[in-house]
């Protein structure tokens, strides 16, 4: 099993901590999902959100702070440093937004920030597109994990470009790859795992579901199913039926 900067995840689900109706429901969602990692935004909660941060620490899962809401390299680097202090971790999910409506990553700034942060000793989890060349540049910048989007953040559209994601998987067979963003349904998460991705990161699909804890459990089960299916080497799709029992040589009774 691949590790994330040397850490094996107990469960390949990374769950966000934003937008839940209450901290109590957030906690239930984590308990139901068994998520191995909690992502947390520092920028939106900037200031003295000590109580909330303590609640995140009390979840007893690995914390992956993020730079959500940052639009420039400078903002992202500053936020990463703050995250390292608050959560005492080298991990940082690097998110650099390039477009207000699609929240699409600005991949040019992303590569630059990834290089700066890696040189600073951070272990960077870059939120990127499914572009192979950007992926290569991020790896050259020192990243050892890539997190391509399935679809725009919060859109719930699933895997928009399966072809590109398959290409990414086969181009980087040894790099831990996480589908980050765009998941709306458990079937989307299962799909990602069936393609051989190593983990799924999601937030809105659980936090904004009518019953976040139940949706968290559904995601966990789907991810486990998708992971098992990938390990089991699924059959290829075909155009014609393939009978599961032989038809030639059967006794005809007419």
């Amino acid at each position: 099993m691949k590790t994330f900067y040397g850490t094996a995840l107990p469960n390949p689900l990374m769950l966000g901590t934003a937008q839940y109706p209450s901290p109590a429901i957030l906690e239930q969602a984590f308990r139901q999902s068994g998520a191995g990692v909690a992502t947390v935004s520092l920028r939106r909660e900037a200031g003295a959100g000590q109580t909330f941060w303590q609640m995140i620490r009390d979840l007893n899962v690995l914390v992956l702070p993020n730079t959500a809401g940052c639009h420039t390299v400078k903002e992202a680097v500053t936020t990463a440093h703050m995250a390292r202090e608050v959560f005492d971790t080298k991990w940082i999910k690097l998110e650099l937004i390039g477009h207000t409506d699609s929240l699409q990553p600005d991949v040019f700034q992303l590569v630059e920030a990834a290089r700066i942060l890696t040189e600073d000793g951070f272990e960077v989890f870059p939120y990127t597109t499914d572009d192979l060349i950007v992926g290569e540049r991020l790896l050259s910048a020192g990243c050892q994990v890539l997190m391509p989007w399935g679809a725009p953040i919060g859109s719930g559209r699933g895997l928009n470009n399966e072809y590109a994601l398959r290409a990414m998987r086969s181009e980087f067979p040894d790099v831990p790859l996480v589908i980050d963003a765009g998941i709306g349904l458990p079937s989307h998460a299962a799909h990602a795992m069936e393609l051989g991705f190593d983990a799924v990161l999601l937030n809105t699909a659980v936090a904004r579901a009518g019953d976040p804890a139940v949706m968290a459990k559904a995601m966990m089960q789907a991810i486990a199913a998708g992971q098992l299916a990938h390990q089991a080497d699924p059959i290829e799709a075909r155009d014609m039926a393939e009978p599961s029992t032989p038809v030639i040589g059967k006794a005809f009774l007419s």
């Binding site: 909660e45 200031g47 959100g49 000590q50």
Partner: peptide, 8 residues
């Protein structure tokens, strides 16, 4: 609605 306790 911000999970922050800085009301300055």
């Amino acid at each position: 609605m911000v999970e922050s306790e800085d009301s300055s």
